[in-house]
């Protein structure tokens, strides 16, 4: 016989191989990462970090940001409202104090999440971070619903997104992941603009606008009124936007929005995600990350499927 018979029993890949994924220029040991601002070194006390493919830090800005007045949180019937307002110590303090700790303690790629108020400011931040070791990529946060970027609606204009990404992509060889807002009329158009600007991946979705009011008093549960809505309630929205974006661009998608379990993760991979992040789930279940990877690995092993095989193969 001219053709060799494929002997599956000898070439069965193990769970580690099946879980392997790629996000732009990054090789990920697992497709799981964490949503910016929901996870830090404190969480790594709870489980073995090997279940994470990358670590995304809390968004930093050029200058320190005080954040929004309290109350900043409210747990709804289905998910969480937050109004943190990107509170952070600023780029200089991040580089001086936080980055050395990450360099010492993290055993996985570090993606630094940054937000700016102008294209020039974003560029200045990336130029500064390029001089620092121990960074594998950037999440460009143009989508926080809790801050106003001095009138420039970054995440909602495809023209501005193109200009921004085009400028930043010339500054770095590291992973350049653009985090998109769901609060736009056509997310695919924005994603295409990011791809045209040579982003290496897309992250979506940031939080949706949300609000809660005490029915007795009429008072908003959140001091600033409108907040960012995350968690289980936004999962169908995130899934739809992942699918829609995956149809529109060729660069990989890091999907998030209401992912709690390995079943949720699979739904997003079918919809087109190369990697997924858990956010609010970290608050609800401290072991959400290892449980997700255990479940996902077991499923892929049983079914002999890899991430790359099922990615974007949702049956419509």
């Amino acid at each position: 016989m001219g053709t060799a018979i494929k002997d599956n029993s000898k070439i069965r890949p193990n769970a580690n191989e099946l879980l392997h994924s790629k996000l732009g220029v990054l090789e990920l040991k697992t497709p799981l990462t964490v949503a910016s601002g929901t996870f830090d070194l404190e969480n790594l006390e709870f489980f073995d970090p090997a279940c994470l493919g990358a670590f995304v830090c809390k968004t930093i800005t050029r200058l320190p940001k005080k954040g929004n007045p309290p109350p900043r949180l409210y747990e709804t019937e289905a998910g969480l409202l937050n109004s943190i307002g990107l509170q952070n110590p600023g780029l200089d303090a991040f580089i001086a104090e936080k980055l050395p700790v990450y360099q010492e303690q993290l055993r996985m790629p570090l993606i630094v999440s940054v937000s700016g108020s102008s294209i020039a400011e974003f560029a200045e931040m990336i130029e500064t971070l390029e001089t620092c070791a121990g960074i594998s990529g950037y999440e460009i946060n143009i989508s926080c619903p809790n801050v106003e970027n001095e009138g420039i609606a970054f995440g909602v204009s495809s023209e501005i997104v193109y200009k921004l990404v085009h400028r930043l992509s010339a500054l770095t060889q590291r992973e350049l992941c653009i985090k998109l807002s769901p609060n736009v009329s056509d997310i695919a158009e924005i994603a295409q603009a990011a791809e045209a600007g040579k982003a290496s991946s897309i992250a979506l979705i940031n939080s949706i606008y949300g609000m809660a009011i005490d029915y007795r008093t009429g008072r908003s549960r959140i001091k600033k009124g409108i907040a960012g809505y995350t968690g289980i309630g936004i999962k169908p929205v995130a899934l739809a936007l992942t699918h829609k974006t995956a149809q529109a661009v060729n660069i990989p998608i890091l999907a998030m929005g209401g992912i709690y379990t390995w079943q949720d993760a699979l739904e997003f991979i079918w919809a087109g995600a190369s990697a997924i992040a858990i956010g609010t789930a970290n608050f609800i279940n401290p072991l959400a990350a290892p449980e997700l990877i255990m479940g996902l690995g077991k499923f892929l092993l049983e079914q002999q499927l890899s991430i790359s095989e099922i990615k974007g193969k949702a049956v419509i």
């Binding site: 309290p70 900043r72 608050f283």
Partner: peptide, 17 residues
């Protein structure tokens, strides 16, 4: 006392001035 999400210093949801 404050409303908390993470309770371990990660989310900054419970902050006071």
């Amino acid at each position: 006392e404050s409303y908390m999400a993470c309770g371990i210093g990660v989310c900054h949801g419970c902050a006071v001035p």
